[in-house]
Design a protein around this nucleic acid. Structure first.
Lengths: 253, 253
DNA sequence: TATTGTGAAACCTTTCACAGCG
DNA sequence: CGCTGTGAAAGGTTTCACAATA
């Protein structure tokens, strides 16, 4: 995920691993909660528990940012909040546009977490002329015709796509054409973008399918445990999947 | 993500890598599209392009499932659709409940991708008594009081949490108590679950923060490119991460 | 003394490159 | 001949375990 820019200049030591970057927001959230409770310092053990990771990983992650802790004591909460915010680029304001104001787009527009961390919903855009002018989450919806102008007028570099799958690539192309270089895609489709543009995708159906895989595995193990591992496994093996032949009706739709 | 179950029994060769599992839904989607266009076979190169990965990765992924291709020809589309569906556990029907019918919950209930792939929204649950009985996406909302009964009556093992962060852990505990063993969490909070329960999280704010990180980095590199890479990089090196002090404004906006 | 910061080991994932096969 | 399937190499991530130190 989040590919683009394959030819990293491999510049110096500043390469924070992607896995670490993906966890920084988690740490930041936990730290913000501590900060609100006026907790002055926190150990890697405590913070890791709050963020749902283990402490070795957290310390390693922080080591990429610098030496911000104090041995024997822990980390200064406020200081870390600032350092991580800066590292993530949250000390500045990021205007974002949301394209596709259906159920999901509207939910996103209303989502408080957006505004709270440096992101500002600069505009809502939809292709339906009937929606134009209607306010959603207090922001008037604008028509797709004006997409390029809206992007440029607001200096938007981050776009959120919440359109139907069929419209996503076209919307993506127009966003990129107008200068957007980061896209959060909720449409269940693969987006093609030029180098230098980052795409992250959120796909509800994919997440559920991954859960189903594990759920199925659990059910299998359970059954196996009930009746002697090898026997049960073998039984299901043959019952459920014949040699192959008759591909039974593949999913309704 | 999706931790839980640390003590994998390491059963036989059936251990499909997690990274592969996460891509199977992607392949499945691409294959389904081909199937609808009645394309009979597809090469790893073509399918990989459609799924947005490279062909070596795809072939390696498929090799964990078995030898389902034909050298010199490619893969049989229908057959692969069936094999992947089965591997993911989509040949059976998974009843899911959605808890928290706010904007997001309603959007999820209306999301077509749910129903289309073996998942059936068995119930919608909300804590607001005023919502009880109201239909959302054609399904009447039920009150949280009945959560346990609903889970059991419907044999639900997958739950979706779309409540505010403050309610999520409590809802999670009740879901797990009632027998749910897979949770898709949209609330921006860390969920604690017992071993054997899988949690996957979808967090809009985290995705945006990751994009912001890369966006910021691009802005920095751009600036560097303007003025002679090495020199600029060296300059930023010393300016930006001195002791800490003055963080130079990166990118006007 | 309690806790960080980090080399080194273990593990997982991706990519390469080509033998094997239809 | 063309394309799959896969060992082996390369690269990335997590965990271990302990020296360094406030």
């Amino acid at each position: 995920m989040a590919t683009g820019r394959t030819h990293r200049p491999a510049t110096r030591s500043r390469g924070i691993p992607e896995a670490t970057v993906a966890r920084l927001p988690l740490y930041l959230r936990a730290l913000t909660a501590l900060s609100e409770r006026s907790v002055p310092t926190v150990s890697s053990e405590e913070l890791a528990a709050a963020a749902g990771v283990n402490s070795a990983k957290l310390r390693k992650d922080f080591s990429y940012l610098g030496s911000y802790g104090t041995r024997g004591v822990g980390y200064d909460v406020e200081y870390l909040v600032y350092q991580i915010s800066r590292e993530l680029g949250l000390t500045q304001d990021w205007p974002v546009v949301i394209v596709g104001i259906g159920n999901l787009g509207a939910a996103l527009a209303n989502y408080g977490g957006f505004a709270s961390r440096g992101f500002r919903v600069a505009a809502l855009i939809d292709a339906d002329p009937a929606m134009a002018g209607k306010p959603v989450a207090g922001i008037p919806v604008q028509h797709t015709d004006d997409l390029e102008r809206i992007i440029r007028d607001n200096g938007v570099s981050i776009g959120v796509i919440a359109t139907p799958a069929g419209a996503a690539q076209q919307v993506c192309d127009r966003l990129v054409g107008a200068g957007v270089t980061s896209i959060l895609n909720f449409a269940p489709t693969v987006l093609n973008v030029p180098d230098g543009v980052d795409v992250r995708k959120v796909d509800l159906s994919i997440e559920l399918q991954i859960l189903a895989f594990h759920e199925q595995r659990k059910a299998g193990e359970e059954a196996a445990a009930d009746a002697g591992v090898a026997a049960a496994a073998a039984r299901r093996e043959s019952a459920e999947q014949g040699p192959d032949g008759d591909v039974p009706a593949v999913m309704p739709a």
